[in-house]
Design a binder for these strands. Sequence first.
DNA 1: AATTTTCTGATTTACGTACATCAAATTTTC
DNA 2: GAAAATTTGATGTACGTAAATCAGAAAATT
Lengths: 366, 366
Amino acid sequence: MRPTVHDIAAAAGVSLATVDRVLNQRAGVRTVTRERVEQAIERIGYVRDVAAANLAKSRVYPFVFILPAGDNSFMRGLEAQVRAAMSRSAAERTSISVVTVPAFNAEALVAALDEARAKSPAGVAVVAIDSPDVIAAVDRLRADRIPVVTLVSDLAGSKRDHFAGVDNIAAGRTAASLMGRFLGGRSGPVAVLAGSMLVRDHRERLDGFQAVMTENFPGHVLLPVIEGQDDPAMVERLVGQVLASSPEIAGIYSLGAGNRGLIAALKRRAGGTPVCVIAHELTRHTRAALNDGLIDVVLNQDAGHEVRSAIRVLKAKADGVAVIGAQERIRLDIFLKDNLPFEEDSGTDTPLEQGRNQEPEQGAAD
Amino acid sequence: MRPTVHDIAAAAGVSLATVDRVLNQRAGVRTVTRERVEQAIERIGYVRDVAAANLAKSRVYPFVFILPAGDNSFMRGLEAQVRAAMSRSAAERTSISVVTVPAFNAEALVAALDEARAKSPAGVAVVAIDSPDVIAAVDRLRADRIPVVTLVSDLAGSKRDHFAGVDNIAAGRTAASLMGRFLGGRSGPVAVLAGSMLVRDHRERLDGFQAVMTENFPGHVLLPVIEGQDDPAMVERLVGQVLASSPEIAGIYSLGAGNRGLIAALKRRAGGTPVCVIAHELTRHTRAALNDGLIDVVLNQDAGHEVRSAIRVLKAKADGVAVIGAQERIRLDIFLKDNLPFEEDSGTDTPLEQGRNQEPEQGAAD
DNA sequence: AATTTTCTGATTTACGTACATCAAATTTTC
DNA sequence: GAAAATTTGATGTACGTAAATCAGAAAATT
């Protein structure tokens, strides 16, 4: 049987009350006694039964998720995943509230962070915007001992506890590597389409992409970066212009959102030299385009995994407990037409793995 | 506050004991009363607190993992992951035992399954071999109401509850797609290297690969499949022969294990036309070869994820509880030189994410 | 040595559920 | 309508931990 607090008490020759004081770092224990208890814990290999402890504490974890608002399939899918997690709240002892703020607006984000701080939750998850003010706001949360996890887009230089997102430099490098090899001998310039250089994930993808392109595939000229603000209409217009002005274009790397616009522009073009297109985030639009051959590769991050990971990490940080590091690494999914996972619910404008509650029992596809 | 059994009792106007009888399907409740209680449960939205229930039951889940023996980096890594899970047993209320059986030996596997059955565990995870005897053995377990999860290699036609592994047809298709596009205009035959056609995962990868190659890249002749039994020495010898007899070879798809032998043979070759090499499973050998440019792509399944998923699913099946479907889908990782995750402990002959217990705090790489 | 302060022990209640026992109420059977 | 069978209620203990109280012991201070 697994040792309990009673066993510690017996092993250390102290009472249960003293063991409790040591375990929960309460005052009123002499150093010698404390050490004796700690040695006993070590010796008999006691580990606290978190389930029982949470039961006794009737602990709940109030978490705040701060996400960008706006018509962005990926972000809305992320929000859907957070709401799916909310529906599991009872079982997971969480109490999650979602706050949306205007996209690419550091000031609004700072306000939201400070508002969250006022509620002193057990943890905050935030899609960060890279700005000194935001860093300061995150550090204020940390100063109040509130765990913070950045989601999707990281915030270097801040004291955030953890980043739940993909390695975006690697994503950019991978895109370049695939682009270069898919183009094979073909020549022609390559365009890069971003949302905004304000968010770190976009900047990092761009850096990785440019690094590998210039180093390994110098034959392809990189056109000036197009900033589409993740807005489908704006993206469609800008991409249309580039396609018109550079008919010999060989590839497009879309590292942000608003791919509906990109796809529309590609469809309108038709004919001409084939263009190798690599985009981010699997939504129903990019999935369809991949199947139609309009897009060659989709790089994806799994929103559901990111949300669940963020919650696990926030819980662990709140409890001061270790996490399984490898489990929390968010992977970069590379999707070709050939390894697309089965489509879930269509109809809604959400990415992969809409929160589903019953197991679908479809064997390998699950 | 979340409703408890007391709330059900109050809402249904019965005693706690009766609620308990209904919840745990004990005898001695009239149908009318039972229905009244069930309606109350429905109405107030009661969900059992699994943590408290497990505490009261002091439940442990005895699981058996059956893995192939032998000198196979991937399988040994899988075993390491199971052992990592064993070290978390206390916290997770599991009690895991590992059984290794000779590889590609259906008879031995059947014996191991029956032996596991005799111990009537709470669940069994098994790397399956595709054979009628094995199907029958698995179905015997299911007949005893013991949940079974197949791991890495599935067992179609059996009554297994779940498959924790990648979609291997998609893996083969993806390999072919990347191979064809990476080869671009280049011509030349392509060799396929497998372990054994006895295991379903290898057969499926081959099927997927051949389908896409013949359909989309008919210019490349497929050489007869090499069966290397996942044995490095045998693989090295056989690949050496093929490289010698077909100097104009353009690509190699290694869909099984024993890649140490493949790499050795490639190194010995040097010179000649460049060969596009796609292999499975990221081990320290394939990682090094990817970095050196000897291998172009590594397709990987995350052994740690597979093991943790198998345990979660077995637990859920044992409790008759739903699982988060999307969380249990095992993804196919596609690794290029550019998106290799940071290397963990080297020195040991194991794949990615050796069980580590403390969080390394390295930010995005985590 | 007496007093104050600081530790430590013993005991109790609680968290939400499981499970057992026994008495009381209700239904069924003859 | 009484006896037997079934159903229901009341109550207590347990799981492992948290948290509180209060009494007693040990140490530090005067």
